[in-house]
Design a protein around this nucleic acid. Structure first.
Lengths: 333, 333
DNA sequence: TATATAAATGTAAACGTTTACAGAGGAAGA
DNA sequence: TCTTCCTCTGTAAACGTTTACATTTATATA
């Protein structure tokens, strides 16, 4: 592989000049520039961005840490991050934690060793120690799908409490009283925890006693949703509605209910969370809380770059989420 | 940030020794090793993998190029690649082409500048020039979801022709004659092209005349599937069954059919392709051709690493795909 | 104890850029 | 003509590792 030095020799200039035609062409005389570009062609020169990164201490690479790319919501925000980064000629290294905090820690470490310029993290545990370490060492990062609303760190998220509240209120207004919730494992997803809080608070505000037997916690998966829904339907005095902490759980719940011979939505109303694309294509269409995943990723990336570039102040951004009513919810029997 | 040199000074050894405790601890005396590790702690040493990459010309990074992470199939194989890579302490940089070949070319270039050790590509155009360039320059890469069956390049894929054939045969055996196909744009997806060939060949083998009006080509999306299905249903002498080139199209087609008031599967049988997770959770369950996406990613990565490590011979691997019959297909009316 | 061998460590160059600084040359102003 | 100021280019050090080779130290053998 040829280097800048080879090019320089062929063109009869110094390496500095070659570097300049690459990085700031306007500072070199047109004639010289021509010589250099021609020399590049003749020796089939390939730029070495790694060497540049080494020299400048800027890798032009960021790390993106998410629970799992399998979840369409995270896939969507990943696109947002990538699209924003690629515009700036920055690459993104992707890592899945599978909702395991140790994995998150080790990813952060590896990515920092790789000298990423910054990190975008959908954390599994906002009170974990890595975030503090990153803060202490003033390493640029921003939280995605964040539940933190203030403090010295950059974050973008939605109001999960409100989302949970809205979902529950919608069901209550349809006359439901036995409202179950299928949630993620709280220790693995703070978001789920906040949604549950919204659910609880809403019940309280409408004078419906909270029944802890109507909470099922499970892995974020279709099967998890299916099995949990079945459990809730087997309880004495079973639920007539469930609020699921995400759409995959909700889709699973639909399946579970049908496997028990129920008609949807007459026998069971279901609300999801996320508004993934497929939610509107399923029958009955899934009522859900929509959150702007792509935008979240894009905004997160923008925030990060601002932070990397001008040491901007950390800020938290709350995006709008909203209830989308489709056919999976109906009046209580 | 402290460097190996700082550590060396504190520990009273040379940088070579420090490097050795990092890379081959067993070659340094236990006592020295102790001194060094302690020195690392005291100055909070952080390893610089970028510098290493620069020195060794091995970035321990690979590039993964896919059409779009939005498609669950590609998300799944991305996981396969990542899981395999991370085991080897290798990171993966992800890039989406959005089915645009120029984007693919530019991604390859950028990633190579970043000195990735190899590439895994789900190409949009197997006859494009980049592949040949990569081959010429002996750059390690492997094709995923590949349609090439022989030649000097590494590739893993399934038999798309056979898949298309099986899907069609299934419909024919159910008595369908007016069988439409909703495919991707052939110039953007060779896979779709091969599936269509399988479809055509099968019709021929069963003496059903091929009607070019029953082919709809569209973007790979839910909306694309919906709109195309509607078009096919509005044809004179409309279809009683459609074979869709992927599950998203099929899910879209379901929606389209229902929007026209049809009952599924009685009025329209639908076959998809991919067997994405949601396919079995939808009502009616989607009959589809399953392909082992995770395995494909994993195998692709393994092949790549073998190639990087021991200059192994290129090889093509064909994985098994199979027809999964669910409820979305039934006898012709 | 002397020698041969093996194990542990050090020396210094190399990897391919960038960039602060210096220098050359030319134009413009006095 | 001399000075000043630009514009363009060159020089050389720096970035943080690795690694071939040389050297020292320890161990085994006679």
């Amino acid at each position: 592989m040829s280097t800048i030095l080879d090019v320089a020799k062929i063109a009869g200039v110094s390496t500095a000049t070659v570097s300049r035609v690459i990085n700031s062409p306007d500072t070199v005389r047109e004639e010289t520039r021509g010589k250099v570009t021609r020399a590049m062609k003749t020796c089939n020169y390939k730029y070495n961005a790694l060497a540049r990164g080494f020299a400048t201490k800027q890798s032009n690479t960021i790390g993106l840490i998410i629970p799992t790319i399998n979840n369409p919501v995270f896939a969507e925000s990943t696109r947002g991050v990538q699209d924003c980064a690629n515009q700036k000629k920055i690459q993104v290294i992707l890592g899945n934690t599978y909702y395991r905090y140790e994995q998150e820690e080790s990813l952060v470490e590896t990515l920092r060793e790789k000298q990423v310029d910054g990190l975008i993290i959908t954390t599994t545990n906002p009170r974990g120690s890595i975030l503090n370490i990153l803060l202490d060492e003033e390493f640029p990062f921003v939280l995605l799908y964040s539940t933190v609303k203030k403090g010295p760190l950059s974050a973008v998220g939605i109001d999960n409490f409100k989302g949970g509240y809205q979902a529950t209120e919608h069901l209550i207004k349809l006359g439901h009283v036995r409202i179950g919730m299928v949630a993620g494992i709280f220790s693995k997803s703070d978001r789920s925890f906040h949604r549950w809080h919204g659910y609880k608070q809403c019940l309280k505000n409408y004078d419906i006693p909270y029944d802890k037997n109507l909470l099922e916690q499970t892995e974020y998966s279709l099967t998890g949703g299916r099995d949990s829904a079945k459990k809730l339907l087997f309880r004495p005095n079973p639920v007539t509605a469930v609020f699921c902490s995400n759409d995959y759980l909700a889709l699973g719940a639909m399946k579970g209910a049908r496997e028990l011979g129920l008609n949807l939505p007459e026998d069971l109303s279901i609300v999801g969370f996320d508004d993934i694309q497929i939610a509107s294509y399923v029958i009955p269409g899934l009522t859900t809380i929509s959150q702007p995943a792509y935008k979240m990723g894009k905004l997160g990336a923008e925030l990060l770059f601002k932070r990397i570039e001008n040491q901007a102040k950390p800020e938290q951004r709350m995006l709008e989420s909203s209830l989308i009513v489709r056919e999976s919810t109906t009046r209580a029997p």
